[in-house]
Design a protein around this nucleic acid. Sequence first.
DNA 1: AAGATAGGTGACCAAAAGGTCACATGTCAA
DNA 2: TTGACATGTGACCTTTTGGTCACCTATCTT
Lengths: 103, 103
Amino acid sequence: MGGVFKALADPTRRFLLDLLFTRDGRTLTELESELEMTRFGVMKHLKVLEEANLVATQRSGREKLHFLNPVPIRQIHDRWIDKYTQSRVSALLDLKNSLERPS
Amino acid sequence: MGGVFKALADPTRRFLLDLLFTRDGRTLTELESELEMTRFGVMKHLKVLEEANLVATQRSGREKLHFLNPVPIRQIHDRWIDKYTQSRVSALLDLKNSLERPS
DNA sequence: AAGATAGGTGACCAAAAGGTCACATGTCAA
DNA sequence: TTGACATGTGACCTTTTGGTCACCTATCTT
């Protein structure tokens, strides 16, 4: 469980999740090209994300495909926000968003 | 924004949030008594939580009261879980919980 | 006023984390 | 089958982080 929080603590790893959120199934090399870092650094970060179960992988020949797993993030949410608080907080954030980006 | 993730990365700070989740408005000394750590360590952790806006404080004489703020946690959730995924994932977790703790 | 109580600051040290590199294995394609 | 490509490992260094302590200020109580 603690691995998830450690994994989310680094900005590079959050950016990797952002990349996978927009499009799944990318290879290491493809992800590396989006970052100003050597392949080895990206590999370490992906390993942390994988061990935290935030990223699932699948081999395909010499390539390794990466997929975002949203479940642990939902569990973080549920730890400190009960069902009653939830509706209040999300209503507040919806209001805030609609004020910042008026449609 | 990054401060929130760093704040959540440490187990002691998560435990502090757990304590405030069960009961709000505690003082530093009261929180310290629940931990195997000196007051200074706890103070540092509370400062990190406060700067991350996960804990709000209020002075009352020589005491400082601490309150849990759930908003940033909801924002983490919304970053990687869209409205469609949300219902699927939460349904999955509800099922998992009902299987683990049959009522 | 004086002791006790609650909280705060800066220096300091040990442990952990982020990043790079030399080197190595497995897979594809001509 | 040879070279290019995709990924993997371990050592190494620098920076950040967690924790303690000496010392300090503010507030309450008698």
